[in-house]
Design a protein around this nucleic acid. Structure first.
Length: 814
RNA sequence: GAGCCAUUAGUCUAGCCUGGCUAUGACGUCGCCCUUACAAGGCGAAGGUCCCCGGUUCAAAUCCGGGAUGGCUCACCA
């Protein structure tokens, strides 16, 4: 038996990574019908090159639960996926390979993306394995693989058949730099220096009014002028006609409450499109559409002499001309925040494009109901989900003008534009390569078709992770596990993506499966840096899990990750990683000590007469098992960890082991069964401490389990061993007496320490003064007390030092 | 502007839902101890206006109202 003095995490962790793989203990058993299934809808991390402590943090949380459930005897379905399609991955590849997707061959670009993803995923997989995720890697998937493509396209086709997916010319958020539509969530605020320009517009009767704008280059796209209906100063303008300066077309004045009467002159020009409000007005009042900016960010023909200028150039030129004509009366410098694309930092534009949408707005109430059916941990996170739904204003735009992603499975008739979708059994398809599903257009008879070049946004695929994992596309095939694992038991994720990932998944599940996607959702917080700042590349404060694993260990990392309540953020502090290392070492040493004394332990011995101290620690153990189990059931892993940690460090190591040592080393001083009672108790408390710690620190607990308990229990790994249950034979009264012993010993230790005595200093006698009714009880704990404080005798008479929390006093003689 | 969350020793954190112990534990600090599991240790000690102001109550870190500060999400940004 290897009982080295110090626990060596590096060697141990490497060893078990290998062994666990060979033992296949994390394998989901799809043929087992007896065990209850616990299925996890694991978040697929975005393949975009960087991985930080935030990932390690939240993935650890999921693993705590997976390991706990496995020990509870569940058949755990714990897959792992990679989100490796879409814009984030494209950007990662473009940067790494110094290429641009839009000026190279599409298929060549896709090939490079696939290569890069494979590399990155190997790296990631290695890292997750080191952290100790008990994932079944046979259940791996990627959001660009055939299964995901088919799932995503089938979802689209089905929604089309249901009338919930539609194509429409609609203003979309557009990034002129990346040349793609964006979703709202891809936007970021950025502050720019700009000017508020006071420009003169003219009424038909020649009267001049002033309109303030930061975007004079949009004058050619001006389609209306808006005032507040109740603004006394501007009310008279309603329904009048106004001439747009430089471009001389006339537009109508409309009244709308969205105008702030105190901003600028209280008169706004509405252009298609300068911002979101412009779009709302355009929609609400059926205004004309004028496009002044091209997808590349240049002026269109509409801009007349400013055509082909870049946005900034046109702005300057128009301001110059306004000045010359005397139409610009003031320029006020301001700082204003503008929506920019989070990945390139360029201000976004609104362009009208043909886009595919999924209908959402008519079913808000049902989404809220679905949310109510799910258990949210922590509860308050549900509020964010509800608020998001209540505030929804747009249907979900799913098409993106990019290259590396899942193709939108549609062909359009070249003549009349009618759309044709494939049947679901023909999926997956790529309309840029494959032939249309029909030979002749049913509308006009034309036989030429154009395949859609767009791809799905990443969320339309990742919102289908439950369907992908449950093999929804192959429900009747032999891979059918859909009915068994759906709805999933758990969705773990971080709180920043409740509003889209969690929400979109609920939507898809309602539409396609008429059910909630999961019964429980567990929301993790973020990992912060040592100054409680969010980790981000631009701040340069990112800590990589790799470093932490090298410097400390996987157990220490996980121990840290279990250090805060579910949903709370946690700063990364090295000192807390050290605590994890110490804990592992402590487990190793205390277990080693116990196991040394268990070598001759006879399991079969029955009717062992336990000492009060034994009852005391076993009673504590029972309480700990009960509370730890309750906590894990509520996904309160940090509480579970704390309870087990306290029981083990304080009750077991500091108190019980110190008391029981003398019985183990000097059994001749006690009656016959005393050593056996100690062994029985040690076995229970050490084994159950290991088990309760196993979900959090899987390596050191496994290593220790294998020293002795694996053989005793005849189970090959602690991680598939049964979860602890409370012992029935514990006597609470005896436990209370045992606690007296603990208190007396602690008081004498403190006395020794206060008087600068060594703790193992021998005493000739201890004198205890206690109420008469305690005398008999003191007799039963006398041997343990004498042994623990190294005293020859224990005498009952008057004593001087009060023991806190008791009616007992003590004195000692050296 | 709105919603949600947080605020507890030098630092991180528990307790709050369900009011009642001397407010938990760790790191750090200080003192003693190399004791046959562990010096990555043991035993002790010091360190707190539980963010502020009110209210409810016999009793408030805990419940209620108001405020401050920080964080996250959303909206606005003509």
């Amino acid at each position: 038996m290897d009982l080295s003095k110090k626990y060596n995490p590096k060697a141990v962790e490497e060893k078990w990574q290998e062994k666990w793989k060979k033992m296949k203990i994390y394998r989901f058993d799809k043929n087992n019908t007896k065990k209850k299934i616990y299925s996890i809808d694991t978040p697929p991390p975005t393949v975009s090159g960087n991985i930080h402590m935030g990932h390690a943090f939240s993935y650890s949380h999921t693993d705590f639960i997976a390991r706990y459930q496995r020990m509870r005897g569940k058949n755990v379905f714990y897959p792992f996926g990679f989100d490796d399609n879409g814009l984030p991955t494209e950007k990662y590849v473009e940067k790494k390979r110094k290429i641009k997707g839009h000026n190279m061959d599409r298929q060549a670009f896709i090939k490079i993306c696939l290569e890069e993803c494979e590399d990155a995923e190997k790296l990631f997989t290695g890292l997750w394995t080191r952290i100790g995720l008990s994932v079944d890697w046979n259940l791996k998937y990627s959001s660009i693989d055939q299964r995901a493509q088919k799932t995503c396209q089938k979802a689209f086709v089905d929604l089309y058949d249901m009338g919930r997916s539609y194509i429409k010319e609609a203003p979309s958020i557009w990034c002129p730099g990346c040349r793609t539509t964006l979703a709202q969530v891809e936007l970021e605020d950025k502050e720019f220096d700009s000017y508020f320009n006071d420009i003169i517009f003219e009424l038909e009767n020649g009267e001049k009014i002033v309109i303030a704008t930061t975007r004079p280059e949009l004058l050619p796209a001006c389609v209306a002028v808006i005032v507040h209906p109740d603004n006394e100063k501007t009310k008279y303008l309603i329904n009048k006609k106004v001439k747009v300066p430089l471009f001389n077309n006339t537009v109508k004045v409309i009244a709308d409450k969205r105008v702030d009467p105190d901003k600028g002159s209280g008169i706004v020009m509405c252009c298609t499109f300068g911002d979101q409000t412009d779009m709302e007005w355009w929609k609400a009042y059926n205004l004309e559409l004028k496009t002044a900016i091209t997808p590349a960010g240049k002026m269109t023909e509409l801009a007349g002499k400013y055509k082909d200028m870049k946005i900034e150039e046109a702005r300057k030129a128009i301001i110059d001309d306004l000045k010359k004509e005397g139409l610009l009366i003031k320029q006020k410098p301001i700082k204003h925040t503008v929506n920019v694309h989070d990945r390139c930092g360029k201000p976004i534009e609104f362009l009208v494009k043909k886009q595919w949408f999924y209908k959402l707005l008519d079913r808000k109430k049902e989404f809220l109901e679905q949310g109510n059916k799910i258990n949210w941990y922590p509860k308050f996170m549900k509020v964010r989900f509800d608020n998001w739904i209540k505030g929804l204003q747009w249907d979900w735009s799913v098409s993106r003008q990019r290259f590396y992603g899942i193709p939108i499975p549609v062909w359009y008739c070249k003549e009349c534009g009618k759309e044709f979708l494939p049947k679901t059994d023909e999926l997956p398809v790529d309309p840029t390569k494959d032939k249309a599903p029909v030979k002749k257009c049913t509308g006009c008879g034309c036989n030429e078709f154009i395949g859609d070049k767009d791809v799905f946004d990443t969320w339309s695929c990742s919102s289908l992770t439950p369907q992908i994992n449950a093999w929804w596309i192959d429900e009747t095939g032999n891979k059918n596990i859909c009915k068994k694992i759906y709805p999933f038991s758990l969705r773990p994720q971080a709180h920043d993506i409740i509003t889209f990932w969690a929400f979109n998944t609920v939507v898809q599940s309602l539409y396609h499966n008429k059910s909630i996607p999961w019964e429980n959702i567990m929301i993790s917080g973020h990992a912060l840096d040592q100054n409680s700042q969010k980790m981000s590349k631009s701040k340069g404060n990112v800590v990589e899990p790799q470093e932490v694993l090298d410097k400390f260990s996987a157990d220490a990392l996980r121990f840290w990750a279990a250090g805060t309540k579910l949903g709370d953020d946690l700063p990364y502090l090295e000192k807390d990683l050290k605590t994890g290392l110490k804990f592992a070492n402590k487990i190793w040493n205390a277990s080693k000590f116990s196991i040394m004394h268990l070598e001759d332990y006879n399991f079969k011995a029955k009717d062992i007469k336990l000492f009060p101290a034994d009852h005391w620690i076993l009673n504590k153990m029972n309480e700990t098992i009960k509370n730890t189990t309750d906590s894990f059931e509520k996904y309160a892993y940090s509480k579970a960890k704390k309870l087990t940690e306290y029981f083990f460090l304080v009750d077991v190591c500091d108190n019980y082991l110190e008391i029981v040592k003398d019985r183990l080393y000097n059994p001749q001083n006690y009656d016959q069964q005393s050593r056996l009672a100690a062994q029985y108790t040690l076995y229970q408390i050490i084994l159950n401490s290991l088990k309760m710690s196993a979900p959090i620190t899987p390596y050191v607990t496994e290593e220790t389990y294998q020293l002795y308990f694996a053989k005793a229990e005849k189970i090959e790994s602690i991680h598939i061993s049964p979860w602890p249950e409370e012992l029935k034979k514990v006597d609470k009264k005896q436990a209370d007496i045992g606690e007296l012993a603990i208190k007396i010993v602690a008081a004498i230790r403190k006395f020794k320490s206060d008087n600068r005595m060594a703790l193992n200093e021998k005493l000739s006698e201890i004198i205890i003064q206690a109420p008469k009714e305690l005398h008999n009880e003191l007799k039963t704990i006398e041997p343990d007390i004498k042994g623990a404080v190294k005293s020859e005798k224990l005498i009952l008479r008057k004593a001087e030092h009060k023991i806190e929390g008791t009616d007992i006093l003590f004195s000692i003689k050296t």
